Simulated assay, not measured.
Amino acid sequence: MTALRACGVSELELDTPLRVELDGVAMAIVKDAAGDIHAIGDRCTHGDISLAEGFVEGDTLECWAHGSRFSLLSGKPLNLPAYEPVPVYVVEIDGDDVLIDPTVIKEV
């Protein structure tokens, strides 16, 4: 599969997750304070909660329900109660388009 348009760069607010669904795969897209754009699986592995409703701090996304923080770079949980990682997707930028292939998980 080729990368699909997830959103526009101009649609992303700093440190504010955006939930998108591409080909049935839910993900949270984040533009961090450094301006880097990340895409990770949208479901917290602890409580099946949308991570796009969480809080961004640096290069982490915190689940609002139970406080687990996930690395935007690796998808790994940084604290309990979550202990399983979420997938991280490769992000491509083409002009204002954020492109992601939901079938390709980033190797970390």
Rank of each mutant, 00 (worst) to 15 (best):
G54T: 08
C7N: 04
L14P: 14
L72W: 00
G47V: 09
P77M: 05
A65V: 09
G47M: 10
K76F: 14
I100R: 00
I49S: 12
H38F: 09
P102Q: 05
L14K: 15
A39K: 00
V108R: 09
V25Q: 15
A3P: 08
G24S: 05
E84M: 10
T103M: 09
D96R: 00
G75A: 02
P102V: 05
I37R: 00
T2H: 12
C7T: 05
E53K: 13
A26F: 07
P17D: 11
E21I: 10
K106F: 07
D23L: 14
R19E: 15
L4V: 15
D15S: 07
V91F: 00
L72Q: 01
L12V: 03
L18I: 02
K31C: 14
I40S: 03
Y83L: 14
L78N: 04
T60N: 07
A52M: 03
A6S: 12
F70L: 03
A33M: 10
V30Q: 03
S50P: 15
V91Q: 01
R19L: 14
L4F: 08
A33N: 12
K76C: 11
E57H: 12
E84D: 13
A34G: 08
R19M: 15
G75P: 05
E62C: 05
G95Q: 04
R5G: 09
V104E: 13
E21F: 05
G8C: 11
A52E: 02
V56M: 04
I29L: 11
C44A: 01
G41Q: 05
R19D: 13
A82V: 09
I37G: 08
V88P: 11
P81S: 02
S71F: 00
H46F: 07
I100A: 03
T60E: 14
L73C: 12
S68T: 11
A34R: 06
V30W: 00
H38D: 10
P81R: 03
S10G: 10
L73V: 15
I29S: 09
P17T: 04
A34M: 06
M1I: 13
A6T: 03
S68D: 07
P85L: 06
